[in-house]
Structure formats: C-alpha cells, structure tokens
C-alpha cells in the first residue's frame, strides 16, 4: 500500500500571548482513495491538526509526508499543489461569482498575471460538474444558500487538483439533506478520483456510518482505525466521559443511567418488531427497563383493525388502562411511578 499521508511523531500547537496550546505526538497514515473523519471534543486541537497538515501552522516537532514528499522541505507553492484546504470561513465581503471562486483554485499553477489557461478552464469545469453547481456559475456567493456555498468552496478545493483534501467541519450548519449530499459527494470523490480526504465533524453517527477511517482525538490519546474496529474494542466510549455510551445495536448514543422501573412488553404475532422496538424505546426514555418475566406491569400491544392499542395490566392480571398511542401510554406509566 502506498500511503498518501504519513504523520510521524507530530507535535502540534502554538504559542500566543496568555494562550499556549500543544497536543500530540500523533502518528498515523492515510491511504489513497480513502475518506477519513476526525472527531473529538471541542478544543482538543482538531482544527490545529488540520491547519498543520495544510501547512498553515508549523509543527512543533515531527514529520508530515504527503505523496512521499516531506512538506517541511518544500516551498509554499509546492505545498499548494499537494494539499487543498476548506476552512470554516464562509463569509466573503466582496462580490465573487461561483465561477470566479472555483477559478481561484488554479492559482498555484498560474504565473503572476493569474490568467486561466485552456487546461485550467477544463479543470474548473470538471470541479463545477463534480459538485453539480453548474446552474450557480454566475451567481454571487452572497445570494446562494449555505449548502450551495459549501459545495462551491469544495469545488474550489477540487480545482486545486491536489492528491489530498482537508476540510474543517464542512457540514456544520447544514440541513440534513445537504449534509448527507456533501458527505456522499466527498466519499465518491475520494473513491473515484483516488484522493485522500480528511475532514473534521461533530456528527458521530455520520462519522461511524460513512468514514473509511475514523480518527479519534482525545486529550490523552489518539485512535485511528476503521469505525467498526473502534466499536469492537469499545474504544469509542472513551469520547463520552461516562455520560453516554455508544450502543452498537441501535447505532445511537445513549445516556448512561439506571432504570429504576421495569415492565414486560408482550405483543400479538401480527405486531411488527418495529412497533415493539419503538415501545421499548419510549419506555426507556421515561425510565422503564423492559424485561421478559417477573412481577411487573405488563404491556400488551394489540392490533385492532389496523390501529395499534397498548393495554396495561397490573402484575396481578387486572387491566389498568388501554392507550391508543405511545404518548398516552407514557403519561399513564409516569403516573404509575408515584
């Protein structure tokens, strides 16, 4: 395997008045055609790591090799042909059309006059096409939506035509459709164009579901692996400081808490498993653990003429209530606690 990015004993940080910061050392490598996501709590240094890899901040020590070239040894314009960077900055004070923005990605290949060659124009076109923003070409960055602007910014990075792309929270502030569109586009780009893409995110669900490699950055350690590997070793729970845990079953985060009440959920065969799971989830939310047997409240899920019905029976067998939806069931069970 040929590594696209090789990081060895990298110590990152900066010295500023009354605010020193350092993290590391980190060692990891990413392959060509791989999309990696970097997660970790706020302030742990995710952005600093990205900025260091982009050549914006000098490392305190250690070595970064991109495409076999140590970036400490080459000029800024050579780095610009190896790494493209998309920052969290999205406001531009001047009128700038989408096409102009994407063309700026060709700067590392231009002479002092900054003219686009025929080849430059072709690369710009490809980038615009890949992000499917051709219809926005002549629109100003101020008049398009947040999602469209993010696509344009990614197209600019694509036009830079680098083996490696770094993106700092590209899906922050985006709605769910745009978020998934952008992640899927980046995955396609990584896989099809054989680029290495590294992005930071706070969305654990997306990171676990979609990344080829998951990098977890914590104050005292750094993990790197396939998201499933990290789940197998229970390492993901290190992220949550005993407040949550990751439930591999449901693929969601759950609050760590003791469930003081118990109930038995039974169902007629005609009731689907989804309904049972939703019922159990609702019970858990209000503090009931569902069990199979014992001297507890019984909840029978029935299906009567395509309508669901939840009947609550006392441990002794007497019917206490009949609810037509989960909300009334929850209200009733909350009352039972007292």
């Amino acid at each position: 395997m040929n590594s696209a990015l090789e990081v060895r004993n990298l110590q990152i940080g900066y010295y500023r008045r009354n605010r020193d910061f350092s993290a590391g050392p980190f060692s990891f490598s990413l392959q060509k055609g791989e999309l990696a996501m970097l997660i970790g709590p706020n302030g742990v240094g995710k952005s600093t790591l990205l900025r260091t890899l982009a050549g914006l901040t000098l490392p305190l020590s250690g070595e970064i090799t991109i495409d076999g070239v140590a970036i400490g040894d080459i000029s800024r314009s050579e780095i610009a042909r190896l790494v493209a960077f998309v920052s969290t900055e999205t406001s531009f004070p001047f009128y700038l059309s989408v096409y102009d923005l994407v063309s700026l990605g060709r700067i590392p290949y231009q002479n002092w006059m900054g003219r686009l060659s025929a080849n430059d124009k072709q690369v710009v076109e490809q980038a615009i096409e890949l992000m499917q923003i051709g219809h926005l070409r002549h629109k100003s960055l101020q008049e398009i939506s947040d999602g469209e602007r993010q696509k344009a910014l990614i197209a600019r990075a694509l036009a830079q035509d680098t083996p490696m792309m770094l993106l700092d929270e590209p899906t922050a502030f985006l709605d769910i459709v745009n978020k998934h569109y952008i992640i899927h586009r980046l995955i396609d780009i990584a896989h099809q164009q054989r680029k290495t893409v590294l992005l930071t995110t706070h969305d654990l669900n997306v990171a676990i579901a979609e990344s080829d490699r998951l990098l977890v950055m914590l104050n005292d350690r750094f993990l790197c692996g396939a998201p499933e590997d990290l789940q197998l070793n229970n390492q993901l729970n290190l992220l949550f400081k005993h407040q949550f845990h990751f439930d591999p079953h449901s693929g969601t985060l759950k609050r760590n808490r003791d469930l003081h009440h118990k109930a038995i959920v039974l169902a007629q065969p005609s009731v689907s498993r989804t309904v049972i799971r939703l019922t159990q989830k609702a019970l858990e939310r209000i503090g009931y653990e569902s069990t199979d047997a014992g001297h507890y409240l019984k909840i029978m899920v029935n299906k009567v003429e395509n309508e669901y019905q939840w009947n609550v029976e006392s441990p002794e067998g007497g019917e206490l209530a009949s609810c037509s939806n989960l909300y009334t069931l929850c209200c009733f069970l909350n009352d039972c606690k007292q």
């Binding site: 914006l56 610009a80 531009f92 923005l101």
Partner: peptide, 13 residues
C-alpha cells in the same frame, strides 16, 4: 479576496 488563510494554502507568501 478569500482571506489570508486561503491565500496561504493557495501558495501565496
């Protein structure tokens, strides 16, 4: 026009 950070990653000193 894109700010100092972007200018730097585009190879500008």
């Amino acid at each position: 026009l894109l700010g100092e950070k972007y200018a730097q990653t585009l190879g500008i000193h």
